[in-house]
Amino acid sequence: MIRLDNISKSYVTNRSSIDALKGVTLEVKKGEIFGVIGYSGAGKSTLIRCVNLLEKPSKGKVFVDGLELTSLSSKKLLASRRKIGMIFQGFNLLKTATVYDNIAIPLRLTGVSKSEIGARVDKYLEIVGLSDKKDAYPSQLSGGQKQRVAIARALSNEPSVLLSDEATSALDPDTTEAILELLLKINDELGITILLITHEMHVIQKVCDRVAVMENGEVVEQGLTKDVFTSPSHPTTKKFVNSIFNHQLTNELLENLGDNGEIVSLKFLGHSSKDPALAVVSKKFDVYPNILSGNITQLKEHPFGSLLVHIKGEESEVQRAIQYLKEQNIQVEGAGHHVKNNKRIS
Rank of each mutant, 00 (worst) to 15 (best):
D259I: 03
N157Q: 12
V309W: 05
I186G: 05
V99N: 04
E177I: 00
K312D: 05
T237Y: 06
L182A: 13
L190E: 06
E252Q: 14
G38E: 06
E215V: 03
E166G: 03
S272C: 07
K185Y: 10
K239V: 00
I194A: 09
I291K: 05
G111I: 03
Q205K: 15
L125H: 10
K312F: 06
P159M: 09
K75G: 06
S346Q: 03
V62T: 03
Y324F: 15
H310C: 08
I263L: 10
G129R: 02
V264M: 11
A79G: 00
G60D: 02
Y100Q: 03
G35N: 01
D132H: 14
A152F: 08
Q331V: 11
V228I: 12
A119M: 12
V51F: 08
P57D: 10
P276C: 13
C50D: 10
L155R: 06
I192T: 10
K146M: 15
E55F: 04
K267M: 12
K300E: 07
I2G: 01
K29W: 00
G31V: 06
R82W: 06
S139L: 10
L4R: 08
F229W: 04
T98Y: 08
L266Q: 09
V211P: 02
E252I: 04
V36I: 15
I2T: 04
S265D: 04
G38D: 06
P232A: 04
